[in-house]
Amino acid sequence: GEGNELHQLNYPTDVLIDKETDSLIICDQENRRVVRWSRRSDTTQGEILIDNIDCHGVAMDDQRYLYVSDVEKHEVRRYQLDENNGTLVAGGNGQGDGLKQLNFPTYLFVDRDHSVYVSDNNNHRVMKWVEGAKEGIVVAGGQGEGSALAQLSCPNGIFVDTLGTLYAADWGNSRVMRWTQGDKKQGTVVVGGNDEGKGANSFHWLRGLSFDRQGNLYVADYNNHRVQRFSIE
């Protein structure tokens, strides 16, 4: 049940699997902590990895560095699994819409070059921060909140494939958008784009998204209490 003990969670917002330790790493948002739970059947409680953080999204790179977004400090930090302070990799310059700033960063994706993609929720854009960069690059949206193909509305889950194509859960427009690496002016609607609803190809508050090895797209359809699967060409 809901609570702040080590055997409890309180509104978890994101999770990843650490294959090396066969464990789940969870953003336990309302408890202001990131916790790790072993996937062994005899596990009864988690352990705190990072505390005192208003986390929302978590990601891990191929060197097992952990990336966590902080919606209170409007920043993303990279952590070794045994440290609590981390290294700033995106934002951290106060709340705002400049290229050095973020405004309520939520979901994350880290590519093979250790570039960090950030759903900059309240700026209605997705930012890319190359490793070591002092400012980010707008790779989707950033044209104000709206429903045009050049716009996003409170983006949530993101995924970047090996070609650099970005997929974003466009929460306010009930659609998943695709932005190719060479075209930052506008995206294309992959699924959804209809009014909020319960039918097939409709959503009511999109959250996370992911792909399997066969290229099927999975979307967390929050207010419809379901996960939808789509075959993407």
Score class of each variant (00 low, 15 high):
residue 2 E to Q: 12
residue 7 H to P: 03
residue 12 P to D: 07
residue 14 D to E: 11
residue 15 V to S: 08
residue 17 I to M: 03
residue 19 K to A: 12
residue 24 L to V: 07
residue 28 D to N: 07
residue 28 D to F: 03
residue 30 E to R: 14
residue 35 V to S: 10
residue 37 W to Q: 04
residue 39 R to P: 07
residue 40 R to T: 12
residue 40 R to L: 07
residue 42 D to R: 08
residue 44 T to G: 08
residue 49 L to R: 10
residue 50 I to G: 06
residue 51 D to Q: 15
residue 52 N to W: 11
residue 54 D to Y: 05
residue 63 Q to V: 07
residue 64 R to K: 15
residue 64 R to M: 09
residue 65 Y to D: 02
residue 67 Y to A: 11
residue 80 Q to C: 07
residue 81 L to K: 05
residue 83 E to K: 09
residue 84 N to T: 15
residue 85 N to Y: 02
residue 87 T to L: 06
residue 90 A to E: 03
residue 94 G to E: 02
residue 97 D to W: 01
residue 100 K to A: 01
residue 100 K to C: 00
residue 100 K to F: 01
residue 103 N to R: 05
residue 104 F to Q: 10
residue 108 L to A: 01
residue 110 V to M: 04
residue 113 D to T: 10
residue 114 H to C: 10
residue 119 S to P: 01
residue 119 S to K: 10
residue 121 N to Y: 09
residue 121 N to P: 00
residue 122 N to G: 01
residue 126 V to A: 11
residue 127 M to I: 06
residue 127 M to C: 13
residue 127 M to E: 01
residue 128 K to V: 13
residue 131 E to S: 13
residue 133 A to T: 00
residue 141 G to E: 04
residue 141 G to I: 00
residue 145 E to F: 00
residue 147 S to W: 00
residue 148 A to Y: 01
residue 148 A to N: 12
residue 150 A to G: 15
residue 153 S to Y: 06
residue 154 C to L: 11
residue 155 P to G: 08
residue 160 V to K: 12
residue 163 L to M: 11
residue 163 L to S: 13
residue 164 G to T: 08
residue 165 T to D: 15
residue 170 D to E: 09
residue 170 D to R: 08
residue 172 G to N: 05
residue 174 S to D: 09
residue 175 R to W: 09
residue 176 V to Q: 06
residue 177 M to V: 08
residue 177 M to L: 03
residue 182 G to E: 13
residue 182 G to T: 13
residue 183 D to S: 12
residue 185 K to V: 02
residue 188 T to Q: 14
residue 188 T to W: 04
residue 189 V to Q: 11
residue 189 V to N: 09
residue 191 V to Y: 10
residue 195 D to L: 07
residue 195 D to I: 02
residue 196 E to G: 06
residue 197 G to A: 05
residue 198 K to E: 15
residue 199 G to D: 13
residue 199 G to K: 04
residue 199 G to Q: 08
residue 207 R to H: 14
residue 211 F to E: 04
residue 221 D to V: 12
residue 222 Y to D: 11
residue 222 Y to W: 14
residue 223 N to T: 08
residue 228 Q to H: 07
residue 231 S to L: 13
residue 232 I to A: 13
residue 233 E to K: 15
